[in-house]
Amino acid sequence: MQLITCPYCGPREEAEFHYGGQAHVPHPADPGSLSDEEWAHHLFFRDNPRGPFAERWVHALGCRRWFNAVRDTVSYRFHHIYRLDQARPETP
């Protein structure tokens, strides 16, 4: 099984983690001013790149903390794992 390195607990089995979708999706500054289409794009439309992708993960069966990771969607390799208060590292 693939190991994912929790920024707090260290390497743990993939089964302990849950996926949280694309990271760094900003909440609209003024949601009330959005049209239905713009709101739908904020809620449901996500990037689907082939290659490095910044994602949110949670160590659900360990420390239950959310963190971000840059994962390659082709190879499943985790390039970077960083806490929520850290900036996204440059992708290789």
């Binding site: 607990c9 743990r12 089995e13 089964a15 302990e16 069966l61 360990g62 420390c63």
Partner: peptide, 10 residues
């Protein structure tokens, strides 16, 4: 003290 899975149980 680790929080982990033991026999599929947290």
């Amino acid at each position: 003290a680790a929080q982990t899975l033991l026999g599929l149980t947290g």
